[in-house]
């Protein structure tokens, strides 16, 4: 195995709030290989966005981040100077945000914003060249008539077109890593498929590794090579996409898959996971999933299961992952 492009080890993020300390992310480790698409899956509040944002140190000041390592191509991002970090943001690491309605400045032209991404990373800023590149990028991401639309404002763009513009910004400087935070969540279902196809195309053309944050297992199946499942701020399972969908080795993953509508199986009823995710200011003792887990026993209520390697490129944080391997 080559040296990972991005290496996160032992990442924890706490937020101090009036209700006490919220442990948004606890002891998360993650490695992304060059060119690989890694999906981070989990419910809202499971810490997937916080994990991704901490890579580029984009969390608000209130966040207390600690990690044994956050390294991009061997560069330690935790201690990097602000100026050098800015060179990485939008340069070798591009980011796509969830809501293209709010992630674009409403009073700036689309071209101005795409050109901004180019301009910020030019050694000698050249507005005209940046603008030409913006037109080229918009054409690349499938915005029709880019030379004209580049002058328009975000409100003149549809949601899907805006997300295309966001993708254009993210790939503006030929990144090695794209972090896509719920890139299709805010879009219509019909548009989602187009944007996914575009993401795949962008990924294929730039050869960039991608961290895909989503709660949509359909998106995962469509795009990802590897899946990291998060629950309550921890990684509970990590596996290749085929293995994960075939034999989930954590009851939470299994529950997620069971709650998904399937075309290939004849099921009358979807099986939702009962209960709600835990309050992160006061997580339950033992395994955080035990209050909702069908396999839960006494041991789960007291003892936190560590994330253990259970096969080649597979790990699970369940005391009883063996039973899942048998039952499935």
């Amino acid at each position: 195995m080559t040296e990972p492009l991005l290496q996160i080890k032992g990442l924890s993020v706490d937020f101090r709030t009036d209700d006490g300390v919220v442990h948004a992310v606890t002891d998360v480790s993650l490695a992304v290989q060059p060119g690989e698409i890694v999906a981070i899956v989990g419910e809202s509040g499971s810490g997937k966005t916080v994990t991704a944002m901490s890579v580029l140190r984009l969390l608000p000041k209130a966040a207390e981040v600690s990690a044994d390592a956050i390294a991009f191509r061997g560069t330690d991002l935790r201690t990097l100077s602000a100026a050098r970090l800015r060179a990485i943001r939008g340069g070798p690491v591009g980011m796509i945000f969830q809501d293209p309605m709010t992630a674009l400045n409403p009073v700036m032209t689309i071209g101005g914003q795409v050109a901004e991404a180019v301009l910020l990373h030019q050694r000698r800023p050249d507005r005209k060249a940046a603008w030409r590149r913006a037109v080229e990028l918009l054409g690349l991401v499938g915005v029709p008539d880019p030379a004209e639309r580049v002058k328009q404002y975000p409100h003149e763009f549809s949601g899907g077109m805006r997300q295309r513009a966001m993708i254009a910004m993210a790939i503006a400087n030929d990144p090695d890593l794209i972090i896509a935070d719920e890139p299709t969540t805010a879009l219509d279902v019909t548009i989602q498929a187009q944007v996914l196809a575009l993401l795949r195309k962008a990924q294929a053309e730039t050869g960039a590794a991608t961290i895909l944050i989503t709660h949509d297992l359909g998106v995962v199946a469509e795009l990802a090579d590897r899946v990291v499942v998060m629950y309550a701020g921890r990684v509970v399972e990590s596996a290749g996409v085929r293995e994960l969908f075939a034999v989930p080795r954590h009851p939470y993953t299994k529950g997620l898959l069971a709650s998904l509508p399937r075309m290939d199986l004849d099921v009358d009823q979807l099986d939702p996971i009962p209960g709600n995710p835990p309050n992160m200011a006061a997580p339950p003792a033992g395994c955080p999933f035990h209050p909702r887990c069908p396999l839960a026993r006494d041991r789960c209520r007291t003892e936190l299961p560590p994330l253990l390697e259970i096969g080649v490129g597979r790990s699970s944080a369940c005391h009883f992952h063996d039973e899942l391997a048998v039952t499935a």
């Binding site: 100026a83 800015r86 939008g90 809501d99 674009l104 400045n105 009073v107 910020l120 993210a170």
Partner: peptide, 23 residues
């Protein structure tokens, strides 16, 4: 979020002031 997005593309405080805040 668009200010966050701008920071994510590498904008520093001076750039944010000039491009997003003052306009």
């Amino acid at each position: 979020e668009f200010v966050l997005a701008s920071r994510a593309t590498g904008a520093g405080p001076l750039w944010l002031m000039r491009k997003h805040i003052i306009p």
